[in-house]
Design a protein around this nucleic acid. Structure first.
Lengths: 329, 329
DNA sequence: ATGATTTGTGTAAACGGTTACATATACGAA
DNA sequence: TTCGTATATGTAACCGTTTACACAAATCAT
């Protein structure tokens, strides 16, 4: 491995000069700068990030903690983040928490030990005090926080929207699928929908679930039609569950949206391809990731944050699992 | 930040002793070991991974290079990898290459500069010589290589399978969607299907595409029915494209599988929820990731590899976008 | 009792960068 | 000419670990 000393010797200068050339700091005469650059090229030298990190006490790494990359919502967040931080020269250390405190802790330690410059977390943190001791900035994504900068969509509003739209379109016996209790955004949606439903004249049934994943979605879907067969409107905890519901409804030969309406949450890319195409509450995932990354970049550069909390709007995406309403006027 | 010296001083021993306790190397008397451990607890000391890395010249990080995490096939690979390496105490630096050589190079550099202990790549590497200079082991995933350890599914066989099954089920005017030329696995599938089709008595049409992503899938789908409206069987380049095709077919009121059969590739989780449920060639993605990680672990531990190339079987998953054939016997 | 070996601990030199500080020259102003 | 400042470069300390080497005490074999 070729080091800065090798370059210095070859170019006939000191390591300090090479370092100065590398970082464009201090004074360097143009001739020597060129000479050093050439030597770097010639020796194919590339500075050791670890050594740099040790001295400066920060790396160019950013920690990213997600619940589960296998859920299609999160890769979009991740991609938004990556695209943004990459352009600033940072790289990501990725961790899946599976919403388990223990795994989250492991990664927090990893991030600390590796001197990350900052982190973005989209997971549990029921205990926000976990993050208190950290020496680097943290941005919460897909979760709100008063203390920390955070980027999230308005889950409560989304939940309300879903309920309003499904009621407006005529569902009377509504099933509300409640996501895992420890997943905060899922609870917010749920509360949003609940607040609307409880003030409406619709009957409703709440199905409690403990996962948002593919492998379980089918189970919840079956459960609904067993326990509440006469339901004519389902507000799902996310698009995956909604898709499973749709699938099960088809198996049972229910006609969507005529006999049964379904609304999802997230608007993952594949939702527009479901059959019928899924009506859903859209969260701008890629954009959320990007914004979170921007916020973190500002924290890292110690620029003042104009606003610590960024709440992005949710929108109702009307597709074919809900009935049409004719507009007035 | 509390360092090893703080611990040493507090425990009344030398840094060497603390280090020995930490790494369970050399001789340490039981009393002092306990005393040091207690001090570590008391001071809440956690060793600086960067410093360790600098001296030992290796980190506990592994580089992972994927084409695009947004394509649902890759998160599954990633998850398989993470689960495996995590249990060995390693963490992942993630990069998306978008199949662009330039981005790939950037990440190769990042990995080197950060002293990763190894890397797994599932992307381009048209120029395998890129990987020659590296000081750490590399495992190819979803791509074969004679030189390097690699884990992949039998794409050619998968392509053949798809063609055979669709022909066996009676399609006569087949559309073969050819994935991007620079994506090797896509080409292998294509070649596999092509080899079968060209020896069959079916007519077929090849649609060339340059992406496997959601945003473009719809475009290819529309193109097919414009250019080859009488087609009665479509072999898609992956499940995403297949799903888009299905969606478009429905819009055009084609009856699947009666008038049109469709076969995908990958078996991403959502495929079983498409309508009709997608028949596809399954690649065991999670398992592939896991195997690749296992291979890398062995390389890192310098254990001999029993086999450098691991080829996992593909299987035809019969769902409802293909017609049934009655078994003989 | 004596030497060899095992056990236990400490000192200091790496690892490969960055940067504070020292030094030296060039240049412009007074 | 002299001083102050801008320019240019080098020396060495430092970041926080690991480990080679040195040394001493304890244990063992003869």
């Amino acid at each position: 491995m070729v080091t800065i000393r090798d370059v210095a010797k070859e170019a006939g200068v000191s390591v300090a000069t090479v370092s100065r050339v590398l970082n464009s700091t201090g004074y360097v005469k143009e001739d020597t700068r060129v000479r050093v650059m050439n030597t770097i090229q010639k020796l194919n030298y590339s500075p050791n990030e670890v050594a740099r990190s040790l001295y400066t006490r920060e790396s160019r790494l950013i920690g990213l903690l997600l619940p589960d990359i296998t859920n299609p919502f999160f890769p979009q967040l991740a991609r938004g983040i990556e695209d943004e931080v990459h352009s600033h020269g940072f790289r990501l250390i990725l961790g899946n928490s599976d919403e388990q405190l223990e795994k989250e802790l492991t990664y927090l330690q990893t991030f600390t030990q590796n001197h990350v410059v900052g982190m973005i977390t989209a997971t549990t943190s029921l205990a926000q005090k976990l993050y208190e001791g950290l020496t680097f900035p943290v941005v919460f994504l897909d979760r709100s926080s008063d203390q920390y900068p955070s980027v999230y969509a308005d889950g409560f509003e989304g939940g309300k929207l879903a309920a309003e739209e499904i009621i407006k379109r005529g569902s009377k016996r509504i099933t509300l699928i409640k996501g895992p209790v420890n997943v905060k955004p899922a609870q917010e949606r749920f509360q949003g929908s609940l607040s609307v439903l409880s003030q409406s004249d619709a009957d409703f049934y709440v199905l409690n679930t403990n996962s948002l994943a593919f492998d379980d979605a089918q189970k919840w879907a079956k459960e609904i039609f067993q326990k509440y067969p006469e339901t004519d409107g389902i507000i799902a905890s996310n698009d995956i569950v909604a898709t499973a519901v749709l699938h099960e409804a088809f198996r049972l030969e229910k006609s969507v949206p005529d006999d049964l309406q379904v609304i999802g949450f997230d608007d993952i890319p594949q939702s527009r391809f479901s059959f019928p195409a899924l009506s859903t509450i859209r969260q701008p995932a890629y954009e959320m990731g990007k914004q979170a990354a921007c916020l973190l970049m500002k924290c890292i550069k110690k620029e003042p944050l104009i606003q610590k909390q960024v709440q992005l709007p949710v929108t109702f995406i009307e597709r074919n699992t809900t009935r049409k309403v004719e507009e007035h006027g």
